[in-house]
Design a protein around this nucleic acid. Structure first.
Length: 661
DNA sequence: GTTAGGG
DNA sequence: CCCTAAC
């Protein structure tokens, strides 16, 4: 803090304009490409979807004949003790993570063979059973492999039926699962992939009083329970802020972004962005849009947001597809043994009927227990039946001249973008995420019978990093909860094409496109019997985004998919501001790269452009009255330093480029 | 790849 | 934060 005095610019000085104004530069504004022709994409996609639907149905029918080993839904459980042993599963074609696989397979259900498979569910549908007591042995592994093989077979046939399966999660397993979800799913997707096991129990064990958890509209929520930025704490101990030495840099880990970047080889290439971000970004936009629709009055408070969080809606984007929260769907047929069904939904924070609106009526005729409740067996086990993980709506856009293959690829890319990074599972109770993985179900209250309609699960990409925007049971609460930080729900319920065969992630299903008219309706009618192709399920975006389409018509040059996603807004903390001020004081305002290297080298999510921008805003903030400032208040002392440094460096125009050794 | 500035 | 021009 002493060195600053050396500058001799204490106190505010009117910053002279030392540099040639950039405004003098020619700034040709690229003309926005005209939009047009996008309307045709509707028709194209509608027809294509129809074709795909037919295709899938036929394949499903043929497959039903030999589908005696279809798998019911399997709750993915990671057993850390067995991770290494299960890792060979990856080689079996479980592409990109078993977690994703599990999710998808739950959707793989055909209306045409649901009845048949239902029989299996009651009889010999159990393919493998992993001991709930962690007694998994080699036999268990064999079964798992068999499971995978069978699944692959199913994929080859573009159809895998997954009947409902009751999953029993004993408490003594929970901890193990939690630990692995945390350490595997989140931190190390690959490891988690290898560690995923299917834990399924024969229906026979659970049919006594099954609790059906129909997981719909998985939404992305904050997964940062334990991924906390050290910034929350004392990131800048006095020592590190000292000017002596060059160690006054932010040494925190940006888990999420680092995670992403590590997994993309840390190339700084701007041309490519992780696909997840595209989806996420798009979803955010969709959600934001939803928010606007839901609460148009918010426009009255337009001043409340100027950071562009909403603006992206109207920005030029090259996004080629998007996910949106899905409404409730019933792509599966009801199972009669689900006498008590609990439908747990999360809808990405947009809206949905309350969970309490049990769809039992629609799903179960002889519904004698309209009020669902958790079944707690005498052995202190809580039994869940996760009926299905809902895959959100998928938006794609392809040129009119796109081929079917390209459409398939687009869908595939969308899926991979969504799940490529792995998936976390979040548990929601009363609409709030249960963050403490170490709590027992009993402690959390999940095992309470009253909690049934407040319980939810959400799927979230491993790269998720923001706040929750999830509703379960109490959508109204979520509608207004931090829309700007809302993390994107992952929804995907439209066409799943056989193009996904290669990825071994999905198979074709008969559940291509669901009818979708009212995004908020919670239809209890199963749609399995009336799968429709609704063109609206495939929404197009402005034509200019075609330039960035992930789809490359076969035969044409392979245009590298171009994913663009606005980064999540990350307000600078006071600590960061301080570090920035420090660096700028030393280096000046024209060496942002050096500033970055000096003070933010380990903050991957802060680019030197960010720092420059932040400095810009800081200067502005310092000039305006305190009452006009928003966001986290910056200490006046820092702002003074900002002004001082700004004035100083405006004069000293990097006369001494190297103040530092 | 950086920097500066407008959006 | 994004985008772009100008280096």
């Amino acid at each position: 803090m002493v060195k600053r005095l050396d500058y001799g610019f204490r106190g505010f000085q009117v910053p002279p304009t030392a540099r040639r104004p950039r405004s003098t530069r020619r700034r040709g504004h690229s003309e926005k490409s005209s939009e047009g022709g996008q309307a045709c994409a509707f028709e194209l996609l509608a027809s294509l979807a129809g074709k795909l639907l037919q295709e899938s149905e036929s394949s499903a029918s043929s497959n039903a004949i030999e589908g005696n080993h279809h798998h019911g839904f399997s709750h993915s459980v990671v057993e850390k003790e067995r991770q290494d042993e299960v890792s060979p599963l990856i080689a079996k074609g479980v592409h990109n993570g078993s977690c994703a696989e599990s999710i998808f397979t739950t959707e793989m259900e055909s209306k045409k063979s649901s009845q048949k498979c239902f029989e299996h569910a009651e009889t010999d549908c159990v393919v493998e059973c992993v001991s709930v007591n962690n007694n998994c042995n080699s036999e268990c592994r064999e079964k798992i492999e068999a499971h995978v093989n069978s699944k692959n077979l199913g994929w080859e046939n573009k159809f895998v039926h997954n009947s409902n399966r009751l999953v029993e999660i004993p408490e003594d397993v929970r901890e193990s699962c939690d630990a692995n979800i945390k350490n595997g799913f989140r931190r190390e997707p690959e490891a988690s992939n290898s560690g995923v096991k299917e834990l399924t129990l024969d229906n026979k064990f659970s049919l006594k009083d099954p609790l059906e958890l129909c997981i719909n509209s998985p939404a992305l929520i904050d997964s940062n329970n334990d991924v906390r930025s050290p910034f929350c704490g004392e990131l800048f101990p006095k020592a590190s802020l000292s000017r002596h030495g060059n160690n006054n840099r932010l040494g925190f880990r940006d888990d999420d972004e680092n995670f992403l970047r590590r997994n993309k080889v840390r190339t700084k290439s701007k041309a490519f962005r992780p696909p997840q971000r595209v989806a996420c970004r798009r979803i955010r936009q969709m959600l934001t849009s939803k928010h606007r629709k839901v609460a148009p009055n918010l426009k009255d408070y337009g001043h409340s947001r100027t950071d562009g969080g909403v603006k992206p809606l109207y920005r030029k984007r090259k996004t080629c597809y998007s996910f949106e929260r899905s409404r409730h769907s019933s792509l599966f047929k009801r199972r009669k043994f689900f006498g008590r069904s609990i439908v747990i939904t999360s809808d990405g924070g947009v809206s949905s009927d309350s969970v309490s609106n049990s769809p039992n009526k629609g799903m179960d005729g002889d519904n004698s227990n309209s009020s669902a409740k958790l079944y707690v067996s005498k052995d202190s086990h809580v039994k869940f039946s996760i009926k299905s993980f809902r895959i959100p709506r998928l938006y794609v856009e392809v040129p009119r001249a796109a081929t079917v293959g390209s459409l398939k690829r687009t869908v595939k890319e969308a899926l991979m973008a969504m799940l490529g990074g792995g998936v976390h599972v979040g548990v929601l109770l009363h609409g709030k995420k249960v963050r403490d993985d170490n709590r027992t179900l009993r402690q959390t209250g999940i095992s309470c019978e009253q909690s049934h309609d407040k319980l939810g699960f959400v799927l979230e990409p491993s790269s998720s990093q923001a706040s929750p925007a999830v509703c379960v049971g109490e959508p109204s609460r979520c509608k207004t909860s931090q829309p700007t930080r809302s993390r994107e729900a992952h929804v995907l319920d439209s066409g799943i094409t056989d193009a996904l065969q290669d990825s071994s992630l999905l198979t074709n299903t008969g559940n291509l496109v669901e009818s979708n008219h009212d995004s908020t309706s919670f239809s209890t009618d199963t749609l399995a019997d009336k799968i429709t192709t609704d063109a609206r399920a495939l929404v197009t975006f402005p034509t200019r985004s075609i330039e960035a389409l992930a789809v490359v018509p076969a035969g044409q040059k392979t245009r590298q998919s171009e994913f663009v996603q606005r980064r999540t807004r990350r307000p600078f903390s006071v600590s960061e501001v301080e570090a920035l001020v420090e660096a700028v004081e030393e280096l000046g305002t024209g060496r942002w790269r050096d500033v970055k290297l000096r003070a933010f080298e380990n903050a991957d999510h802060r680019t030197y452009v960010d720092l420059k921008d932040k400095w810009k805003t800081l200067v502005h903030t310092a000039k305006i009255g305190p009452q006009q400032r928003r966001g986290e208040p910056v200490p006046e002392e820092l702002l003074d330093r900002v002004l001082a440094a700004h004035a100083y460096w405006s004069n000293h125009q990097a006369k001494v480029p190297k103040l530092e050794p």
